[in-house]
Every structure is written in C-alpha cells, then in structure tokens.
Nucleic acid binder design. Structure first.
Length: 277
DNA sequence: CGGGACGCCTGTGAGC
DNA sequence: TGCTCACAGGCGTCCC
C-alpha cells in the first residue's frame, strides 16, 4: 500500500505524539519480513528523539540511558499502517504484529500481509539499516536532484521508465499508483525505455513526479483499503487518480479508453493517446 | 552490474 | 453458498 506520501503522512501524524516518549514495553506478534534483531526488553527505557523518513522507510531514533543512540527502521510493506493510541488503545486484532508501549501512549503496527518490517539498528548508517537503504536513489524533493542529474540517471538504464521508477534507483518514493499518475501527467508511455527519454521530457517527468507526490502528501495519501494515518484518518488522493485503477474507463483528458498492461508483474495504467513513447 | 522473475503473506472480489 | 483464480499500495534475492 504505502508509497512515499502515505509514509510521510504517517510520519507527520505520529511525530508530534511520539517525540519524547519513553519506551515501556515492546510486544511482537507474528513474524514480519525480518526479525527485530534485538531482545524487545533491551528497548525499554529508551526515549524517542526523532522520527525521520528515507524513501518508504521510517527511522525511529532512540536515546539510550547512557546517552548513545540507536533506533528502529520500519517499513509498511504492502498492507501496513501505524496507529497511535493515547491511553485508550482497543484490544489487539489478529493483524496487529508490533507494539511499542510508551509513557505517552501506544504505537501499533497493523499489517495483514506482513510484508512490513521493524528492524533494530545501531544507527541509520550502520548495518542492518545501512544495507537496506544502500541502493535507494535520491529523495524526490532533494535539491541535489536536478533535471540534468535525473536525465543522466535515466540514460544509464535500458529498462522501461515505469519499471525504473518502481525500482527507486533514480528517485525513491513513487510506487505503482504515483508512477502511473506521474507518467500520465508527463505524457510519457510507461513502456518507453528510460534511456530513450529526451532531456525536456525527463525534465517534465521530474516535475510531474514532484507535483504528483506533493499533491498526494497534501491530500494525506491514498486510501484504497488498509491505509490510515497514525491518527486513523484516511487519505483522499484516490479521488484525484486519473489513470490508476481506471482500466477501460475513458481518459479524463481525451476520452480514449485507459489501458492496463503488466510490467514486471505489476499492473500499469495509461492513456495510449495522451502518453507517447 | 543490469534486468527480469520469484517469493514472501492474507484478503477480497469476480466468475462459475 | 462455496470454490477457484486473479489481483492487491513493496522489495530483497536469485538467476541469467
């Protein structure tokens, strides 16, 4: 489920509550994608000192009693969501698989498919967090990511632009929904080879990615099924999607039927008239 | 190394 | 109603 806008919305709705909270108890449910990597009891008495995001990962920085820091790297996978409960958390459901109890309230991860993860790491730039983040491209709103560098990155890949965006190698954050939507906004056929995209079209695509992701963050993300912000609110961007999930429906610009093709085992939606190779 | 397929899991909706 | 199948917001791993 969660792409960058959903993860960022989660982060924003959580950070005000959890900063400064002191860990009481940690509870683990069924196994997630990877083991926590530390005894849960080891985390007790740590203080939450930051909640940052890198790509679709969240980094919950913890301060130890001796002043040193470590933290938890969290990922929501396809179906995960994080919820914050003050002091009135409802009983656990069957899909709740991680809880961080604090003196301010409870952080709970709900994830039916369990593709998500919570992994302890000594630091963001130390294993295992560093290994998981090592292949990520730049953040979409990073000022170092320019039209020029973006075009240069595209030129080094022969795969389709849609698959490349999903890989996160040239820019993190766009998953299946936002990759489709940004390619529509830029007028680029998702099957187009990345290294065949001209400089001006690359510039348009970068702009479209930033606008699409930015508007999705403003809308609180996309809620198709599972996704909720930490305060329980749903996203609204699903109402703004112009091609995603609209197979055979008329393009909102030219009325041509929206097509669905499969690329790398993922559905791609596009308008064959508005989007060109 | 780049690129593509696979697998991890559970739930849901369509079709029969 | 109940079964089977396709599909679902991600991504690390494996194999060419």
């Amino acid at each position: 489920m969660p792409e960058l806008p959903e993860v960022e919305t989660t982060r924003r709705s959580l950070v005000e509550h959890i900063l400064g909270a002191k860990v009481g108890q940690v509870w683990l449910g069924k196994p997630l994608r990877w083991p926590l990597g530390v005894e849960p009891s080891c985390l007790v008495a740590r203080t939450v000192v930051a909640l940052d995001r890198r790509g679709k990962y969240l980094w919950l920085a913890l301060q130890r009693g001796d002043g040193r820091r470590d933290g938890l790297l969290m990922h929501l996978g396809m179906s995960g969501s994080l919820a914050w409960w003050g002091h009135d958390a409802p009983a656990r459901g069957v899909h709740d698989h991680f809880e961080l109890g604090t003196d301010r309230g409870l952080l709970r991860l709900t994830d039916p498919r369990r593709f998500g993860a919570v992994v302890w790491s000594a630091a963001l730039d130390a294993p295992p967090a560093a290994d998981l983040l090592s292949r990520l491209g730049p953040e979409p709103f990073d000022a170092h990511l320019t039209h020029q560098s973006f075009h240069a990155s595209l030129a080094t890949h022969r795969t389709s632009i849609k698959a490349l965006l999903l890989s996160g190698r040239v820019m993190v954050g766009a998953g299946n929904i936002y990759a489709c939507e940004a390619l529509f906004a830029a007028g680029i056929d998702p099957r187009c080879r990345a290294d065949r995209i001209s400089r001006p079209r690359a510039a348009r695509l970068l702009l479209a990615l930033r606008e699409t992701l930015g508007r999705a963050i403003d809308a609180g993300g996309t809620t198709l099924r599972d996704y909720r912000a930490a305060d329980g609110s749903q996203g609204a961007f699903q109402h703004e999607a112009r091609v995603y999930g609209r197979e055979a429906q008329p393009c909102l610009v030219c009325s041509t039927a929206v097509r669905r093709v499969v690329q790398g085992q993922r559905s791609t939606f596009f308008c064959p008239r508005c989007q060109r190779r």
